[in-house]
Simulated assay, not measured.
Amino acid sequence: MTQTVLVTGATGFVGKRLVPALVEEGHQVRAMTRKPDAYDGPGEPVHGDVHDAGSLADALSGVDVAIYLVHSLDDDDFERVDAEAARSFGLAAAAAGARQIVYLGGLGKDGEDLSPHLRSRRQVERLLGESGVPVTVLRAAIVVGAGGISWEMTRELVKNLPAMVVPKWAETRTQPISIHDVVRYLVGVVGREEAMGRVFEVGGPDQLSYLQMLQEAAEVMLGRRVPILKAPVLTPRLSSYWISLVTSVDVTTGRNLIDSMGTEVIQTDFAIRDLVPGEPLTYAESVRRALAEG
């Protein structure tokens, strides 16, 4: 069934892939951006900024489904900033009569000692739905694709360093997922009654430590593994400075990401595969596609 869909962050890592996929599916898509005059992608560009509540009413007017893809990891006070934006967006979506909000959150078990990053993602889930619009949450770990912060950090580490020193958290397991599968799942839950008000975990088929991810990426990129030494003490702050030296990831974003890497994030619920069938891509194939995209 055709829906009128608003995509926030339409020019971002996920949004710029999601908008054309929704258009191809037959939906009427509004691409929300702070600079609609500069937008040259598919869909209808509309002005809106989740950090400016007054800009949201026009963008959301007549929308059936609003897809929320915004987070502020590059801000030292990202928990407060993201909470305020989510609360405002949920209120505006309810006032506009939206039937569903779809949110891409972070994988990780509830009740654990979550990092500030993952704790913020949970708070955003709750605040988006506080005004009564049913929220569909897709919780993902590392999303692999050209332009994604986590993938670009991995790619640049492998490319720039002949050998690496990694901290203990590099042995923590996670479940990477291709950007292609994330987009497929997001499209698959739009307008679906059975998805409303539910949380779904999404992941690829491989459960890997960050160390294994670096080695698999090196094998695809270089045809060989790279020497890696595990350091017993390397704090998130020190790690973030090191990351910023050898990659294009800034210190604040790096630290906020690394703070989450000590928490195991593994998919334990696979209900999404019943709702949106199809086998997700392996990590190695996700890496090959990311490299092919640039």
Rank of each mutant, 00 (worst) to 15 (best):
T2A: 15
Q3Y: 15
V5C: 12
T11L: 05
T11H: 10
G12Q: 01
G12W: 06
F13Y: 04
G15W: 01
V19L: 03
E25W: 09
G26I: 04
H27E: 12
Q28C: 09
V29A: 08
A31D: 09
M32F: 07
T33F: 01
P36S: 04
D37A: 15
A38H: 07
Y39C: 04
D40C: 10
G43S: 09
G43Q: 02
V46Q: 11
H47G: 15
D49G: 12
V50Y: 05
H51P: 10
A53P: 12
G54K: 06
G54L: 13
S55R: 08
A59C: 10
L60K: 03
S61H: 11
D64A: 13
D64W: 14
D64Q: 14
V65D: 04
A66R: 02
I67G: 09
I67K: 06
I67S: 10
Y68R: 07
V70Y: 08
E79R: 04
E79S: 15
V81M: 06
A83C: 10
A83T: 00
A86N: 03
A86W: 01
R87L: 14
R87Y: 13
A92K: 06
R99L: 14
Q100W: 12
L104G: 07
L104E: 01
E112A: 13
D113N: 11
D113I: 00
L114G: 02
R119L: 12
R122Q: 01
R126P: 03
L127N: 03
E130D: 14
S131Q: 12
G132F: 08
G132S: 08
G132H: 09
P134R: 11
A141L: 01
G145V: 00
G145W: 00
G145F: 00
A146D: 07
V158C: 09
V158F: 01
V158S: 03
V158M: 03
K159L: 11
N160F: 11
N160W: 08
N160A: 12
P162H: 02
P162K: 03
A163N: 08
A163R: 15
V165Q: 04
V165S: 10
V166C: 05
P167A: 11
W169G: 04
A170L: 00
T172C: 03
I177V: 07
D181E: 12
V182T: 10
R184Y: 14
V187F: 12
R192P: 09
E193N: 05
A195S: 13
G197K: 00
G197F: 05
F200C: 05
E201Y: 04
E201F: 06
E201W: 02
V202W: 01
G203Y: 00
G204H: 00
P205H: 04
D206M: 02
L208A: 06
S209K: 08
Q212M: 02
Q215L: 05
L229W: 15
A231Q: 07
T235D: 11
T235I: 14
P236K: 09
W242V: 13
I243E: 00
L245Y: 13
V246E: 02
T247K: 02
V251G: 02
G254M: 08
N256H: 15
I258E: 02
I258F: 05
D259F: 07
M261S: 07
V265C: 07
Q267E: 10
R273C: 12
E279M: 13
A284I: 07
S286Y: 02
V287I: 10
R289I: 03
A290Y: 00
